[in-house]
């Protein structure tokens, strides 16, 4: 249960950063926090108490002893896509800074025309 609370807090803190902060890098940090929260939520849903990881490393293990493997595969994909998205977003932030010489989105909006 405590993991649900942690995941919700991460998602809400991330959305708060995206909504309130004006610095572009802070906004990207907020997006990556939302990402992390969703990963934690999915893994926590797939967890089953007193079961082990889905690897048949030992012949005595049976299929009934394992946690749900589908969210884990999903999150594995999501983390790798997440780093690609973060890197691309930061590249765009760097280009915006080169162009406008500021990271404050309000000033960038003023400089638009």
């Amino acid at each position: 249960m405590i993991y649900y609370i942690g995941a919700f807090s991460l998602i809400l803190i991330g959305i708060y950063a995206v909504l309130v902060k004006r610095n572009l890098i802070k906004i990207v940090i907020g997006l990556s926090l939302v990402d992390a929260g969703v990963h934690l939520l999915l893994i926590a849903i797939g967890y089953i108490k007193d079961k082990t990881a889905p690897i048949f490393s030992n012949p005595s293990l049976s299929a009934g002893d394992m946690v749900d493997p589908v969210p884990q595969a999903l999150v594995l994909t999501a983390i790798v896509i997440g780093v690609a998205v973060t890197a691309l977003a930061l590249t765009i932030v760097i280009r915006l800074y080169d162009h406008h010489k500021t990271l404050n989105i309000n000033k960038i909006r003023e400089l638009k025309w």
Partner: peptide
């Protein structure tokens, strides 16, 4: 939470690479 695959990915990508990419951007 019994997800060693995901833990390894998060350790390699989340702790290592993402931090460095942010640092370069800053």
């Amino acid at each position: 939470l019994q997800a060693p695959d995901v833990a390894l990915t998060e350790a390699a990508i989340g702790v290592g690479l993402t931090t460095i990419i942010f640092m370069i951007a800053i």
